[in-house]
Design a protein around this nucleic acid. Structure first.
Lengths: 211, 211
DNA sequence: ACCTGAACACCGTTCAAGT
DNA sequence: ACCTGAACACCGTTCAAGT
């Protein structure tokens, strides 16, 4: 068949099969990870789904771990947006910060497999994260730092090193998210949300008994 | 060769090759995971190391995930001991609790691959943890609960639901451990220990500015 | 009861070849 | 430049057979 100018034009840019195979590969990999977990992700299946050979991917990624790394990057990008939305939506300050915490854990629980990949669920990615991945992760973390600095400026939070505080808070929401994903929280009332609310209050005022 | 009663007797019990192949398999798998990570664990290599066929393992475990689950169990058993040791060593109470937190994170950082396996680093194990695994994990968690109840009895900690408090504390140390393992803590002074010490103080008195 | 060894279905990756 | 298709080395798992 000769190239017909009136043929189907669903391709985004003038390339062989997909025009943007790279993007399509990341999207399909993310979909599979989300639906069936990282262990079920095979390059063959991804290729089949996209109507492409199983080795076409090597034009765009060094290997499987690079593809998974790109999925992780995309996850951090989305997470950052969710955090900023929640912070703004609840008017920043105290309520905004609690909203951010809830949004964080909720993102993790609605994308458990994706979230695990973001945090070294694959030794592949954990071993040698790309600079791009490190940067995206840093971007999401920065949303936390900024919210803490803003609260310090308003006199809502102790004037400790913002990085220490941000790492501390990150560890808490990350810990809750991971334990919840692993089903280690047992029967906590309204899922992990209850623990997040409990944590928000304890984070603010501590667990020690005032004397 | 006939069975010689004067032959080598290094076998623990009168069985074919190992006397206790099950235990040997778990030990060897744990060693490999610790040394080279879960992704590098192959049943073939484990068998070779033990001088046994690659399918001998199926006499003792349903499949690879069951073997990995047994490794995770062993990890929770060790973790529980470390926590209790630290709690007792520092005279319980406030110092004992901080010692426990440090011990927790230190265990995770000295056995990063093993620790990851304990917390669903393998979708295999996370999907369907055995009752035995759930029980061992619960045992380690109970060490935390007990320490909190003891502190409540001494008036050191708020009289909240001990389970809520324990989940909260667990999330913090787990979060710190995971972020540290993933290298997401950047250049924190003396490793993760610094963050644990910082966290211990914030856990007690909160991050809010007293008015 | 416990283990072997061959076979099966399935991987990620490479590479010469096509267009 | 981008993709194909056959080949390679390596998996976990099964199963009839041995002792």
């Amino acid at each position: 068949m000769a190239r017909s100018p009136a043929g189907p034009r669903r391709k985004r840019r003038g390339a062989y099969h997909h025009g943007d195979l790279r993007r399509a590969l990341v999207a399909e990999a993310a979909r599979t990870i989300q639906a069936r977990g990282l262990d079920s992700l095979t390059l063959r299946a991804v290729g089949d789904r996209l109507g492409v050979s199983r080795s076409a991917l090597y034009r765009h990624f060094a290997d499987k771990s690079a593809l998974v790394g790109a999925v992780a990057e995309e996850g951090f990008r989305t997470l950052r947006l969710r955090l900023l939305e929640a912070w703004e939506a609840e008017g920043r300050g105290r309520a905004g910060f609690e909203g951010m915490s809830v949004a964080y854990v909720r993102f993790a629980l609605t994308h458990p497999s994706h979230y695990r990949v973001m945090f070294g669920g694959s030794a592949l990615v954990a071993a040698a994260p790309s600079p791009a991945l490190t940067e995206e992760a840093g971007g999401a973390f920065q949303a936390l730092v900024d919210a803490i600095v803003a609260q310090q400026a308003e006199g809502l939070v102790r004037p400790d090193d913002p990085l220490d505080l941000a790492h501390y808070i990150w560890a808490i929401v990350h810990g809750i998210a991971m334990l919840a994903i692993d089903g280690k929280l047992g029967r906590h009332p309204p899922g992990a949300d209850g623990l997040v609310r409990f944590a928000a209050e304890r984070i603010r005022s501590g667990i020690a008994l005032r004397v």
